[in-house]
Design a protein around this nucleic acid. Sequence first.
DNA 1: ATAAAAATTTAGACAAATCTAAAAAATATA
DNA 2: TATATTTTTTAGATTTGTCTAAATTTTTAT
Lengths: 222, 222
Amino acid sequence: MLLNLSHTEENYIKAIYHLEQDGKPVSTNDLSELLKTAAASVTDMLKKLKQKKMVHYKAYYGCNLTEAGRKGALMIIRRHRLWEYFLSKKLGFSWDEVHDIAEELEHVGSTSLIDKLDAFLGYPRFDPHGDPIPDEKGHIVQQQNKLLSEIPLHLPVEVVQIGDQSAHILELLSDKNIRIGTLLEVRKRFTYDQSLEIKTGSKSITQISKELSQNILVKDHE
Amino acid sequence: MLLNLSHTEENYIKAIYHLEQDGKPVSTNDLSELLKTAAASVTDMLKKLKQKKMVHYKAYYGCNLTEAGRKGALMIIRRHRLWEYFLSKKLGFSWDEVHDIAEELEHVGSTSLIDKLDAFLGYPRFDPHGDPIPDEKGHIVQQQNKLLSEIPLHLPVEVVQIGDQSAHILELLSDKNIRIGTLLEVRKRFTYDQSLEIKTGSKSITQISKELSQNILVKDHE
DNA sequence: ATAAAAATTTAGACAAATCTAAAAAATATA
DNA sequence: TATATTTTTTAGATTTGTCTAAATTTTTAT
């Protein structure tokens, strides 16, 4: 363990990282719910993580990661997402199967293992869910909108922007009932012309050309 | 965990498997030494493993794996050796770096993960140390002598047999000071003609052609 | 502003895996 | 065979991460 953290401690700081939006403190209860652990147990762990200087913690107030804690969390997220990428791209797991396995693999704590895995995979910047992978220094790109052409199969996404705003494209989109806020899911990707078969909303299926898919910007649907 | 065993319990049955030569019971002390754990702790664990029907155990007598225990041990060894192969062949670790990392990876317990990894690697039958990899049913080939042409770099081996017994080959071997019992280590493998550069005994370096390397049978030098 | 509700912490306990020290059993030796 | 030595087990503690129940603090609502 390079971080001198137990598996459990790693899970806590990862959870705190995910709950920490803006600078607001993370509540004991939210952690308790996310980790499916009694609130009393969370309190105990927060005291220990404070001792290890991984979190700032004040009774009845909540916690925030210290700089060391944030670095640690990013390393765990890096491991998790690289393993997800490996499982999906190399072993052929579907994007919805990889999370639980990566949850275990992420705690194997050899830095050289992860760096070599990163190199082997070709330094991917996004995992199969479209989430950014921190680099070896813990730098992470801001979660950004992606092109529909780059979205994995069966991942629910929401349309947030249209690249080319010409009337022609809007006509086409309107005909397909696609607009900002529409929920989509890529069902098939045809290698021949890179056209997509997508499901919009709850039922209808439609075909999208490569050109069109490169002009639809989407983001993960929560 | 498919086997319902903790990491620690898995380590115990793996250790028992390795100590169990012929049918003789494995002593508490031997386990204690191999696992670097106090004998008293081993006794406690053996009682628990007996309850879980992984071992036969009688106080002051020793233990043996049950059929379930043996199956479990072989699965752990399978995971260990497949990860070693992956680390060595795909990530570029040297054969002496892979053991400790595999020791951690072997406890990640998804069966489909290991079976897909096996397929991804092309169903290798030996790990980087030359040890056989059990298949998905737990079948393991008997440890056998291998051709020098198939030995990984830097692995110390001992010559046990010469394939072609012609005088010509023996003349060549005698000139190179190689005979049954000689210790060798492959230092380099030239892709061009698959010739090898080997170290014999303690000092001398010599070159071996592909043909010759395919007629020298070796075994691991523990 | 004060009582009721919600969130959090404290207290005390438990299971897993470990330890040391002491007791008991098995083995070796004289 | 009787005794000494070695091996193994039992007894009693410790650490980590967890729990429930009760106490306390904070927040919400009247």
